[in-house]
Design a binder for these strands. Structure first.
Length: 512
DNA sequence: TTAGGGTTAG
């Protein structure tokens, strides 16, 4: 069972490296609680830590619950920190916060290792404001020290939430204080800035690194290269690539994948293929992401047969196609109206142990509606829900658009009703799609009624809503009404919101 | 014995 690290059992330094899963852990736990005298807290903590390392948070929590229900089994502050970490990693931050109370009951004080998982968990659950508030409280009320790890968690969370400005401020706070930022934190912020398309600010920060004695690594370079190449700033990419190698920092598989992917997205798939060959010459092993990027590049060019060739060659290369590889090819086939090929692949996925995922379902639904196979699309929509795959914003847009575009307006209206009843993710754009469908079908009355109903649903018409109705009126020759709506729209100075722009961008990017 | 760490896909 438990192996001692060393020869002296009284040191009680247990090693659980051989524990490979929850069952193993439970066996060890049972033996520990049956042994007399009961071991001290260390092996219990080690066992729970091992489960955390294996990402078996549920198993760790169920052992912990057993520990507290059995009198005599020791629980210390380290144990509680492990438990909080488990909750936070299973999207149950609130249970994590409840556990903090146990510290005081047991006369312990929470420390940095208590608060950093809580902060990380709040960011993970997208509770950005609460995370920021907690961080401020930690600093102001000195709930614990603020070390490099806490700063790192907050900077990472802020960057991922798109608040790079505040992340940069924190870097500055760190520079003035005791714990200086390191290469990880700089790389996080550079990556965050690039993702926000603020590449010039990223370059500025990147240039500051050597002056401050902070090393750049392949990760720093990769993040910046991605930022530049996604904006087609190829000259700078080339210069940066050369500079990186001159500094004896060598691109890894991820760096090559980034370059290949961005070249493909630019339509330069043959150049991307050259990069693949260079990568292989340099003894880097391309992986499923490399090949998926290339497949996508070929599909974007309408060269779906070449994408298929790559897909078919994967097993021979020891690479297993992923859900995404399938999704790319399915989408490519639909785009070229090769419906049977697309559906064959879609049906093959479960046999390969792959679940389609929401994006693939969306591609299939979109493709089927496009070729007017509405009953097949409705069947897939049902299958999707049966597979417990929750429709997202795009799914509903595709469904509503597909139903309206195929003269199934009644069905679109009842789906709108269903979405509304679910109460989640309710968006003005769903109405815009249906109103557009109604206007095109000369059912202006029903469209007007939907428009009039919007305030009661807590929705505000946006510029698209107005444009749709104006178009509908013009189509019917009701120019005066169109003019009135235009005036109302101008008075309210409404603009497209971010959600719509995102949708619109995706729709056009996919040549919907 | 507890907390983190960064770069790639549809």
């Amino acid at each position: 069972m438990v192996s001692y690290n060393g020869t002296s059992p009284d040191k009680l330094t247990f090693v659980f490296d051989n524990v490979n899963g929850p069952d193993d852990a439970l066996t060890h736990y049972r033996m520990m609680i049956e042994s007399k005298p009961l071991p001290n807290v260390l092996p219990f903590n080690s066992l729970l830590s091992r489960l955390v390392k294996l990402k078996q948070y549920k198993a760790a929590l169920s052992i912990f619950n057993d520990m507290i229900s059995n009198l005599g089994i020791p629980v210390h502050n380290y144990t509680l920190n492990i438990v909080i970490n488990c909750y936070c990693n299973s999207d149950r931050v609130d249970f994590g916060f409840s556990t903090v109370g146990a510290f005081f009951k047991l006369s312990y004080m929470p420390n940095e290792a208590t608060f950093s998982p809580l902060l990380k968990g709040l960011f993970r659950e997208n509770r950005i404001h609460e995370a920021q508030q907690l961080f401020r409280r930690i600093v102001r009320e000195e709930l614990c020290g603020v070390n490099n790890i806490i700063f790192g968690v907050v900077i990472d969370g802020l960057c991922k939430a798109g608040n790079t400005a505040m992340a940069i401020q924190l870097l500055k706070v760190m520079e003035k204080g005791k714990c200086s930022p390191d290469t990880h934190q700089y790389s996080m912020v550079i990556d965050g800035l690039c993702k926000d398309r603020l590449v010039d600010s990223a370059v500025k920060l990147f240039n500051e690194m050597p002056e401050k004695g902070i090393k750049r690594t392949v990760v720093t370079y990769s993040a910046l290269i991605h930022g530049l190449s996604s904006l087609s700033r190829w000259k700078e990419v080339k210069a940066l690539w050369k500079e990186m190698i001159d500094c004896n920092i060598y691109p890894n598989v991820i760096t090559y994948n980034i370059l290949i992917d961005d070249l493909c997205k630019e339509g330069l798939v043959d150049k991307a293929d050259d990069v693949l060959n260079i990568m292989i010459q340099k003894n880097h092993v391309p992986n499923v992401l490399t090949y998926s990027a290339l497949m996508d590049g070929y599909c974007l060019q309408g060269r779906v047969d070449e994408a298929r060739k790559i897909f078919d060659s994967l097993p021979g290369k020891g690479v297993t196609p992923s859900t995404t590889s399938y999704g790319i090819l399915i989408h490519g086939y639909f785009k070229m109206m090769k419906i049977d090929d697309a559906m064959d692949l879609f049906r093959e996925m479960p046999y390969k142990g792959l679940e389609p995922g929401i994006t693939t379902f969306n591609a299939v639904l979109q493709g089927l509606f496009r070729v007017h196979k509405c009953s097949a699309a409705l069947r897939v929509f049902k299958e999707m829900q049966a597979a417990d795959e929750k429709p997202n914003f795009y799914t509903y847009c595709i469904m509503l658009d597909g139903l309206c575009g195929n003269e199934l307006l009644e069905r679109a209206l009842s789906l709108l009703d269903e979405i509304e009843k679910k109460g989640l993710d309710f968006h003005i754009h769903y109405y815009n799609i249906v109103m557009d469908g109604l206007c095109k079908a000369q059912k202006l009355e029903t469209a007007r009624a939907l428009l009039a109903d919007l305030p009661s649903k807590g929705l505000e018409p946006n510029v698209i809503t107005y444009n749709t109705i104006i178009n509908g009126c013009c189509r019917k020759g009701l120019l005066e009404e169109a003019k009135d709506i235009l005036l109302e729209m101008e008075q309210r100075s409404c603009f497209p919101d971010r959600g719509y722009l995102q949708y619109y961008f995706t729709r056009n990017a996919q040549e919907w």
